[in-house]
Amino acid sequence: MTEDQGGAETVITLYRDGPLLVRGNFRIAQPDGTTIDASRATVALCRCGGSRTRPFCDGTHRLIGFRATCGPEGRRRQDDSDEG
């Protein structure tokens, strides 16, 4: 496996109480276009804000008790009782 996923779509997966994983064909850039080297095919992006290696996850979410669902939040359907 290499970084080149052969033009596959990019998929961002939300993990419960954890980071966002990005798989597929992607590039992480700063606002000026400079690429941030991800060094791996799948990256975990920090979602709790506590990582010391942002934008990448370093597992800090577990230490600070970060809670998040793995579905959409804030615009819940009325029949959606899932609470993170």
Binding site: Y15, R40, C57
Partner: peptide, 16 residues
Amino acid sequence: DEHVLADAVHDVVAAH
């Protein structure tokens, strides 16, 4: 350093 980032990915992949 590699394992801080790699295992942050592996963490959730392995668990879920």
